[in-house]
Design a protein around this nucleic acid. Structure first.
Lengths: 209, 209
DNA sequence: CGTGTTTTTGAGCCAGATCAAGTACGGTGG
DNA sequence: CCACCGTACTTGATCTGGCTCAAAAACACG
């Protein structure tokens, strides 16, 4: 996905291998402050990027999913800016920075591809600010559920702990729980399997605005 | 700044000129949805990037200052993702996309420079999420004031309307006003000239955490 | 089957929203 | 130079959504 448009011979350039790995829910992929020498693309699953707050608590600043790249700061010889933790079973591609650097020396289209990833990350961040950190608890939850569902059938999504839900939306665990419970009672969402939710898209969309 | 490391002859490549312009406070620089064909660097002043919310109100998702680049999405042939409005008198450099594209064809270091700007924008966005949209009103205001002051003496800053202040912090205009007023009364800040504030950095830092 | 963890629920409280005036201020025109 | 007007800011009173503290209930796991 990141390397769409590159030829076979381009890949001959890569020495250290690009390998795949699978993380189970809760696994830490990297930690904020570690020297960034690898970037990752996500093949499946869901990853949270966390920022420690001055008071010790933590806030989730981004959720990454299929086709997202994480650890782009590796290209700039920085340390990782966040800690990355899998929220579900997640399949990753490990890509050594050198690989990208070698490839991009020849191939200018890769640069554009990379910038496109930076841009996507920015768009996601904007969403966290304007949609997930603004308005009532019900509205925030509704917007997040709809966003998560976009990548499935459009009306179902898999969730995670109430604590993480709160940490994405800037709410307490209790409020996150209460809001979900109330939405269930009102039939806006239902939970056929544990942590799998089916959405009443129309009603939630109304709530979201 | 963006073009540090380029030679004179590199600049010969540019056909359409890079020109400067000055915007007064309140001037709209570009509008969300317009086709992005120009990017800008900020020489001085302060610019807000706005996102319309579904309910019609608006939220400020970023503040740009000296050395920041705005409109990077122009490099990807997109439309502008936000509306950009000057908060103070602001001096800008207009850079046509073609200029950057021509230059970057030869000069790989420019790509790195550009990625560095994307990364800075992302860091700023993270700050909006984790510091300006989290915690009590007092804490948010304290963190914003300290952040603004970093680019002056470190303990003074120039402010803007209370409405914008609220729109950055996810608060109402009234709460923004009340919080500022109370901080003045408690001597945490003082306002020698209109909209110029002097900060009690130590106390505010304590409040911020 | 017990033990630790996560989720739910309850009760009370408080920070911030809302609604509504009043006040300061900058600009404009007489 | 002053009176007037519109805008932005401040302040007050009240209400409420979400937080806090606390305890029960549901789960997960050895």
């Amino acid at each position: 996905m990141l390397f769409a448009g590159l030829t076979e011979s381009d890949f001959g350039e890569i020495h250290r291998p690009i390998d795949q790995l699978t993380c189970s829910a809760g696994a830490e992929i990297y930690r904020a402050g570690d020297p960034a020498r690898t970037l990752f693309t996500i093949r499946s699953g869901l990853v949270k990027l966390i920022r420690e707050l001055p008071d010790g608590s933590q806030r989730i600043v981004r959720l990454l999913r299929h086709c997202d790249v994480m650890g782009l700061e590796a290209l700039l010889d920085h340390d990782y800016a966040h800690s990355a933790v899998a929220l579900q079973t997640t399949e990753l591609c490990r890509i050594p920075v050198e690989a990208v650097e070698r490839l991009s020396k020849r191939n200018a289209t890769l640069y554009k591809e990379l910038m496109s990833r930076w841009n996507r990350a920015l768009g996601d961040a904007d969403r966290f600010i304007s949609e997930f950190s603004t308005g009532t608890a019900r509205g925030r939850v509704a917007r997040l559920l709809l966003w998560l569902a976009e990548f499935h059938d459009g009306n179902t999504c898999q969730l995670f702990s109430r604590e993480d839900l709160g940490s994405i939306l800037g709410l307490t665990t209790e409020t996150a729980s209460r809001t979900m419970a109330e939405m269930k009672r009102q039939g806006l969402i239902s939970e056929p399997r544990s942590n799998r939710f089916v959405l009443d898209v129309q009603s939630l969309t109304r709530l979201a605005s």
